[in-house]
């Protein structure tokens, strides 16, 4: 067994930064989506910047702030200031969490919480009826859920035992053997991100080469004794994020299309760019690369990209934008 490519992250305790219930965009039916914290890639367009770091972070929600100043007096390193529109000077902050404790309301929140397996399973099972009537289930997302293989496996197994449909959204950057052994038996749908066909560009924009990722995709789609090819095609859904100037170029999309065709893929989905995350990222004190667009894709652009693919492509709604199904 090869060493995990994410070994340095796995040592952390798995933290969940959000559980979205009644999610309609993360797989079939009504679902609960678990967002893990920690990711081996550092895509510069990452829409959940709070999910990259595996450690807990402090989120500030100005609408809930009553400006009482308790955080200011609680902070041991004087990182809080009411005059600061973002409240916290992130460079100084040591993420000790004292201010979160002090805040009377919910203006300061700890992002990233550890749930014992039982507790997480209990929360996810609360909406079982919704999954049943709608053909939905649970989706693991991130961050990167495969960073915490053992933990994810334990939760997924418990869900499968309760008859729940499971899905994961992965960037594909994981150790195949471990994934095949621990995760694969317990997931019904794998949404697999394919970002850039070119290995160098991949390394430049995401921090890692795409070799491992593409090899894993190949493995997933290859013959496996248990599954028919139709089942495999159903179970794996490649997803391509459309980031203007980065992934959403005719050249890149053509290459991806050819690559997927070569692998026998029949269906994939495109994720239109949604710039609303930028202000959210700023609340977390993240720097946003100035090259990133602040506009939604136009329908014409979407159509152009979609036409590159020679098989059915579904354009997924992300965030608040409109659902477009072709």
């Amino acid at each position: 067994m090869t060493a995990s490519p994410t070994a340095n992250l796995t040592t952390a305790r798995p933290l969940v930064f959000d559980i979205k219930r009644h999610a309609l965009e993360d797989g079939p039916g009504i679902r609960s989506t678990v967002f893990f914290k920690g990711c081996p890639l550092t895509c510069l367009w990452c829409q959940n910047p709070e999910s990259i770091d595996p450690g807990p972070e402090i989120g500030f929600y100005p609408r809930d702030c009553i400006k009482c100043g308790d955080c200011v007096s609680a902070c041991p390193v004087s990182a809080c200031a009411l005059e600061d529109p973002f409240l916290i000077d992130r460079k100084r902050c040591t993420r000790c969490g004292d201010c979160v404790e002090a805040c009377p309301g919910r203006a300061l929140r700890l992002i990233g919480r550890f749930y014992p397996v039982d507790e997480l399973v209990d929360i996810l099972l609360r909406d079982k009826t919704f999954y049943e009537v709608s053909g939905g289930g649970v989706t693991f997302s991130g961050g990167e859920p495969t960073v915490f293989m053992d933990y994810a496996a334990a939760v997924l197994k418990a869900l499968k035992d309760s008859g729940i449909h499971t899905a994961i959204q992965t960037n594909g950057f994981f150790a195949w053997e471990e994934f095949e052994e621990k995760i694969l038996p317990y997931v019904d749908l794998i949404m697999f991100d394919v970002k850039l066909a070119d290995a160098d560009k991949h390394r430049e924009y995401t921090g890692q080469s795409n070799e491992l990722i593409l090899a894993n995709l190949k493995n997933l789609l290859a013959e496996r004794p248990a599954a028919s090819s139709a089942e495999r095609a159903e179970a794996v859904l490649p997803r391509i994020p459309l980031i203007p100037e980065f992934t959403a170029t005719v050249e890149n999309l053509r290459s991806i299309s050819d690559l997927l065709k070569g692998l026998g893929v029949k269906k994939c989905s495109l994720l239109p760019y949604n710039p609303t995350w930028i202000s959210k990222a700023e609340n977390f004190g993240k720097n946003v690369d100035p090259r990133l667009s602040r506009y939604l894709l136009t329908p014409q652009e979407l159509k152009k990209y979609q036409d590159i693919f020679s098989w059915p492509v579904c354009v997924q709604r992300t965030g608040r934008s409109e659902l477009v199904t072709f």
Partner: peptide
């Protein structure tokens, strides 16, 4: 359809 599913659940 999701509306109907929600009511049904």
């Amino acid at each position: 359809s999701r509306f109907a599913d929600t009511v049904e659940a």
